[in-house]
Design a protein around this nucleic acid. Structure first.
Length: 286
DNA sequence: GCCCAGGTCGCCT
DNA sequence: AGGCGACATGGG
């Protein structure tokens, strides 16, 4: 069944930017349509001007996933502090942070260390195809991202075949943890930001960057400010020039995120994503 | 072959 | 606390 949503003219939304900016790893564009799997739903969606057309999920799910009811102009004006971020906002206006399922988000960002986005997508897709539940959807058989219980029993050799490399044991340990603590996500969500961050970082393979991504994309902690090599580069060049040209040490990381939280405010995570999306090379559909 | 990528770990001072 | 190499994989 096809459903449409007509977007309000004062609430910008850009589906292409939102799904191609690298925050979520299970979407691909086929012709005019985006196809993806979210929370056990095989979804197909397209945007024509201010109209979204989709199937595979109901309106409430789509509104919630894309946070269409979040007042984006108000968020963007709150982070719009200078010409640099202003340019990123201008370039990427309509990009919204999506609400990812916490477990999938955690697993994805464990797979995302020291690698590139296409490789992360491949790993996540392989895990889904091998261990996820099949879904009959609008584009043939799709696969849900596997629950922790489905991954916990996997051997190292099993997951190695999903091209996880040295991250294999980290993912197995995280799956075991989530499987034994089914309410882990609710407990993390109920914590104050810094405590939630520490809780995630107790998992092997989850450092500051992965923890911040999971908090931002999976839990909606908008003050999270993940610092990858791109963001380090941009922030160093634009705001903290004494950090430019060297590796990001743990102390540098903390300095950057504290600066960003103070400078951009409670939606620092949106600033991060706009700066990341507007980064020089390679904003393309992948 | 090389360097880089949405980094983190373990071991060393 | 802070420095440093290792690490699997794939793209350019």
């Amino acid at each position: 069944m096809t459903t449409t949503i007509d977007l309000l003219p004062d609430q910008p939304f850009d589906l292409d930017l939102t799904l191609s900016c690298g925050q979520a790893f299970r979407w691909e564009k086929v012709g005019r349509w985006w196809q993806g799997v979210v929370d056990g739903r095989a979804i197909r969606i397209r945007q024509d001007a201010n109209r979204l057309t989709f199937f595979g999920a109901d309106t409430e799910f789509i509104r919630d996933y894309f946070r269409l009811d979040q007042d984006l102009p108000s968020i963007l004006s709150s982070i719009d502090r200078d010409p640099a971020i202003s340019a990123a906002i201008e370039e990427c206006r309509g990009l919204r942070l999506v609400t990812q399922p916490p477990w999938e988000c955690l697993a994805s960002y464990i797979c995302a260390t020291n690698t590139n986005i296409p490789a992360v997508k491949r790993r996540v897709a392989l895990m889904a195809e091998r261990y996820g539940e099949p879904i009959d959807g609008p584009f043939g058989t799709a696969y849900a991202f596997p629950e922790p219980d489905a991954l916990a029993p996997c051997t190292r050799a099993d997951l190695w075949e999903c091209k996880l490399g040295y991250r294999t044991d980290y993912l197995r340990e995280a799956a075991c943890f989530a499987s034994k603590n089914p309410n882990w996500a609710e407990r993390v969500a109920a914590l104050p930001f810094e405590e939630a961050r520490q809780a995630l970082m107790h998992l092997r393979g989850v450092g500051p960057k992965a923890a911040d991504c999971v908090l931002l994309f999976g839990f909606g902690f908008y003050e999270a400010f993940p610092v990858d090599v791109w963001i380090h580069r941009i922030v160093a060049e634009t705001y903290l020039p004494d950090l430019a040209g060297r590796k990001c040490t743990p102390a540098d990381y903390d300095r950057i995120r504290r600066f960003a939280q103070g400078y951009f405010g409670e939606y620092a995570g949106y600033a991060q994503e706009y700066l990341y999306c507007a980064r020089g090379p390679a904003r393309r559909v992948q």
